[in-house]
Design a protein around this nucleic acid. Structure first.
Lengths: 124, 124
DNA sequence: TCTCTGCTTCGAAAAGTATCTAGACAAGGA
DNA sequence: TCCTTGTCTAGATACTTTTCGAAGCAGAGA
């Protein structure tokens, strides 16, 4: 779906980009970033994301059979990932192909960097 | 709450730790990791997490006034973060203090690393 | 012991989410 | 044009989450 029919995260608006351990995140930034984490907060979507990110691109026809779920349910989860700005899709002929949006990925990783406020050792 | 009264994420069980862009995550690993992302998938909790992570530790009495929400609601969100293994808490006298679990943080960051499967440039 | 404050738990209402079936749309081939 | 296949959308239902007020527990101090 290159047509981007829905409100999609504007990556340039993601408040740039101090790790959340450096200073408290303001409400606006949190409102932009939280939906990305939320999209990854479901085991099905996390696996879908991982399958998509593990290849340059992947067809829905290869994603659906990996789960015990109906096609529409997989389609719903892919839509959530799309609207969070984490993946992009494109129809080519009969099939629809998904790939990651690397910049969104990168930003989430940057937000989780540990700062000097935190001890280096595990505290589990 | 050092007494850990509830099922808490066992960090040693977090399938260790290839970035999700390296190979597809299996269902067991996704079931362990997804609740951590889910916990960060709410703007209130993301801000709470950021406030906690921005200091060595912080008192609930300093967290609550930063939001237009009741005490019980903040307490609920803190519990979600605790049960996801992202923070730890301890009562000292009258007040309860929260701090991050740096190892959990680190693992989430590691999962979001970009692999060679993905182009270096943004695709937004 | 009593009372006050800080924080959590309980129980309920409202809103949101996951999943399904049915149906619609798009592309390819007969 | 019609049929088949792949994918998405719509609508319904069951479940989960967010939020609050009320109540409970834990410490500190009079």
């Amino acid at each position: 779906m290159s047509k981007q029919e829905l409100p999609v995260v504007d990556l340039n608006a993601v408040a740039c980009c101090a790790p959340i351990a450096v200073r408290p995140m303001d409400a606006d930034q949190a409102a932009v970033v939280a939906p990305m984490f939320k999209a990854l907060g479901d085991p099905i979507r996390l696996r879908l994301m991982s399958m998509i990110a593990s290849a340059p691109e992947i067809c829905v026809c290869d994603l659906t059979p990996a789960f015990d779920l109906s096609g529409p349910t997989i389609s719903h989860h892919l839509k959530v990932l799309r609207e969070a700005g984490l993946v992009d899709s494109e129809r080519r002929g009969t099939w629809v192909w998904y790939r990651v949006q690397p910049e969104a990925f990168r930003q989430l990783g940057a937000l989780l960097e540990i700062s000097a406020n935190q001890p280096a050792g595990g505290a589990a």
